[in-house]
Simulated assay, not measured.
Amino acid sequence: MHERELRAFVSIAETGRMDQAAKCLGYSQPAVSYQIKCLEQALGTKLFVRDSTGARLTREGRMILPSARAMLSLFESIKSVAA
């Protein structure tokens, strides 16, 4: 599990679309899709239901979202201490 994967996960959860999340993060849409695929494999669960209108969190995704946000906050804290 990597910071990029968590950032992609939270961004998709917030925007509801992979293409919008990619744009916000400055990544390509295939890169964001790959990051989610890797995160889903690492966690052993699907995080999103994808359809033509976007991406919706699964039950597991909704349960993981607060922890992912907390981890990103910790990453930011570590970076500010190190700077």
Rank of each mutant, 00 (worst) to 15 (best):
F48R: 09
L43R: 07
R4A: 15
L47W: 02
Q20P: 07
L72H: 06
E3T: 02
A68T: 01
T15W: 08
G54R: 09
I64M: 13
C24W: 11
S52V: 14
L6H: 05
F9P: 01
P30I: 09
K37W: 12
D19W: 06
F9I: 06
G61I: 01
A83H: 00
S11A: 15
A42F: 01
K23D: 13
G54K: 09
K37L: 15
S80N: 01
I64T: 04
Q35C: 09
E3Q: 08
S52L: 13
Y34I: 12
A8K: 08
G44W: 05
E14M: 07
L6K: 03
L47M: 05
A70Q: 12
R17I: 11
M1V: 12
G26I: 05
M71E: 07
A42L: 02
K79W: 00
V81K: 00
S33E: 13
L74E: 04
P66S: 06
L74W: 04
Q35H: 14
V32S: 09
Q41D: 14
L72P: 06
T15A: 12
L6G: 02
E3C: 05
P30C: 10
R50C: 09
K37M: 14
R7V: 00
L25R: 07
E76R: 01
C38L: 12
S11Y: 00
M71Y: 02
G61K: 05
E40K: 08
M1D: 07
V32E: 03
P30D: 09
A8M: 06
Y27G: 10
A70Y: 10
E5M: 10
I36Q: 02
S52Q: 14
A68F: 02
S80F: 00
F75A: 04
G54M: 12
R59P: 01
G16I: 11
E76A: 00
R7G: 02
I12N: 08
H2T: 11
T58M: 01
T45L: 13
I78Y: 02
R69M: 07
L47Q: 03
L43N: 03
R17Y: 10
Y34C: 11
A70M: 13
S33G: 14
K37Y: 15
A8P: 02
A42V: 03
R59L: 10
V49E: 12
S52E: 14
R17D: 14
S33W: 12
A8F: 01
M63E: 15
E40Y: 05
F48E: 09
V10A: 10
G61P: 08
R50A: 13
L39G: 04
R59N: 03
I36E: 03
A55Q: 12
Y34N: 14
Q29A: 14
E76S: 00
H2P: 00
R69C: 03
L25H: 08
G16L: 10
S52K: 14
A13Y: 03
F9A: 01
R17S: 15
T45F: 08
S67L: 15
K23P: 04
E14I: 10
V32G: 07
E60N: 11
Q35A: 13
V81R: 00
D51P: 11
L25S: 10
T53H: 13
H2E: 09
S77A: 15
A68C: 03
A22S: 13
A22T: 08
H2C: 05
S77I: 01
